[in-house]
Design a protein around this nucleic acid. Structure first.
Lengths: 199, 199
DNA sequence: AAATAAGTACACAGACCTGTGCACTTAGGC
DNA sequence: GCCTAAGTGCACAGGTCTGTGTACTTATTT
């Protein structure tokens, strides 16, 4: 699995550290000196790899933009699994909200490149939901995908403030209701199948 | 209605300006010099009213923390009206997300007083939802209130990034489904009563 | 008229920030 | 052995930021 493991390039080491610090402490809170010092390199070296801090910020966000890999699991399971995955991430102590939302909040309305990446990311997730819903034959896949995206971002924002993984479970419950309302039957995939979901 | 209008105190003028600039441009992006210059006072005067910038930030957030005033409208109407109100705010050009979430994102995990206020605000809104749901006789008012809060914060986060008031409408649609699933009948209050909500 | 309070103008300390310049050292490939 | 590329160490320019000190002016009240 780790096919070419041994030697991370300088650029990658910089991006690794920038990612950790930017995400954990905030883009504005971390200076380039801090990043360089953390790796143990000179600030000059950092600026030889990235022309400016803004470029480093963009690279950081680009690298956070990972497309979900296609899966062969049933679409409904994939959709609901999103919230299980969220709950796992909320439980991790290093989770601190959505890097894109945080970056937009930090950089102000003027920072257009940051917002551009953030919009692209949000839309790509919405489209991922939409395509799965279309596979399920949902009529208003566009609208429902948007609603699911709201639940995802809502639980992330709430967890950022409250630090409570239960927010992911609440989002999953709401998602189940929305899916059921669209005619999607939820069966099987859970730890134990619901035998009689109406008490 | 404007009972004592004429003379805003110095402290209020400072808070007015700090509120506008902090919210619009970001807490970290605005310095105390900028605030003082905007009002036309000396920085010394500002520091005579607030011992530090942190104190000013706290006062700013405290002032943003307004309890929703009790209404005699039907509970269901109040709940759904939240999303109409959100849509109106999204359409305003000066809307830039939730000040509490933004502050937490900007100040990093360490800023405990900021997070404390933010948590209190989120919880107060959740409780407002919960009490209305209890008036409606909803069984799991706690859980449903949390879900509605997720929709609110989700649409705010999405609008912050996308600048699209339709996010509020999507949240309202999802809220309607969740309410209906809890046995709440939505009638009357809309522009035109739905005569036959199933087409 | 005198005293008290509030605000002003302005300089300054000390810290941190981004970004550059320059001479030096190390490591590999030819 | 030599040359090139990459990294180092360090100083520095120029800017911004928070917070303070100090002497002066205005306004209100008594």
């Amino acid at each position: 699995m780790a096919s070419l493991p041994a030697k991370p390039s300088m650029k990658e080491r910089i991006l690794d550290t920038a990612d950790r610090l930017f995400y954990l402490k905030g883009i504005r809170a971390i200076g380039v000196d801090t990043i360089a010092a953390e790796i143990g390199i000179s600030k000059r070296t950092l600026y030889n790899h990235f022309p400016s801090k803004d470029a480093l910020i963009s690279a950081y966000l680009q690298r956070r933009f990972v497309q979900p890999k296609p899966s062969d699991k049933p679409p409904a399971e994939q959709i609901l699994g999103t919230f299980d995955s969220l709950e796992r991430r909320f439980s991790h102590k290093d989770f601190r909200g959505c890097p894109f939302v945080n970056a937009v909040a930090e950089m102000g309305a003027d920072a257009k490149p940051v917002r551009k990446i953030a919009i692209a990311f949000k839309e790509s997730r919405r489209l991922w939901f939409r395509d799965l819903l279309m596979q399920l034959g949902v009529t208003d896949a566009e609208g429902l995908a948007t609603q699911l995206a709201l639940l995802v971002d809502g639980s992330i924002a709430q967890d950022l403030v409250r630090d409570d993984p239960a927010m992911a479970r609440a989002a999953k419950q709401a998602a189940k209701v929305l899916l059921a309302n669209a005619g999607i039957r939820i069966d099987g995939p859970g730890p134990l199948s619901t035998q009689g979901n109406k008490k």
